[in-house]
Design a protein around this nucleic acid. Structure first.
Lengths: 120, 120
DNA sequence: GCTTTAAACAACCGAAAGGTTGATAAAGCA
DNA sequence: TGCTTTATCAACCTTTCGGTTGTTTAAAGC
């Protein structure tokens, strides 16, 4: 079991629980950006955005480098992979089970409603 | 960059940010369980566990059925898939960037000097 | 030198989360 | 009919989170 990564998982999931931080991740997936650039589309102060980035940095979802007086923020895809790894670990177990017919029908019906990919 | 099910993503990531709730998910991946069964391994009251399950239920990560006076909790794998789908959406974009060195250099240059246009 | 810009640090506030105790409802069993 | 089990509801408390304003550091430009 993943007893060691508990705090990192805590931090990562908590970090992604905020829509502002998720949009920051979305923005960073297209390349590094500074705090000011990241703060622009939001109606909050740069200090608030700076705190959001600190939260993402603590979760190791992003890293910061030095470039003159700017500090570009970079995405860290490895941490995102760690999250999908954790989720898949239980998602796949459940798919294999097929113990309750109700559960299967429910998950199939729900999968039709969302954009789930075919597991085959 | 649709942010349609923002609230569901909020709720789901927030729900998984707690180690107790993650262990509940882990337990449920091996089959349904009641509140009392889920509360047993933890040093908190059943009321607290009941609240945790409410949080998971609001995020649609679990569902509850009726079986006499028991209310077994079931896992809902479709919601877990939605999370991996969101993450992969940005993880894969990033992988594509790594494949092209030009894209990396472009984003670096954009972050350094040219603030004239969005680098997308 | 002095000024501007980017960004962090610090103190503060309101709202929400996690936990507790106590009371309540509903189903099964004597 | 009581009585137990299962689980929720309600009020309350403490800690943390998201945001603000104000101050400070650090590097560039003049």
């Amino acid at each position: 079991m993943d007893t060691g990564d508990d705090e990192l998982l805590d931090a990562a999931f908590m970090a992604l629980a905020d829509p502002v931080r998720r949009r920051i991740i979305s923005r960073l997936s297209r390349g590094p950006a500074t705090v000011n650039e990241l703060a622009e589309p939001f109606a909050i102060t740069k200090q608030a955005v700076s705190k959001h980035i600190q939260v993402l940095e603590q979760a190791q979802l992003v890293t910061r480098t030095r470039d003159a007086q700017r500090r570009p923020v970079h995405l860290n895809p490895a941490r995102l992979e760690a999250l999908t790894a954790w989720i898949d670990q239980y998602r796949l177990v459940r798919e294999k089970q097929f113990r309750s017919l109700d559960a299967v029908l429910q998950s199939r019906a729900a999968a039709r409603g969302t954009q789930a990919k075919d597991p085959s």
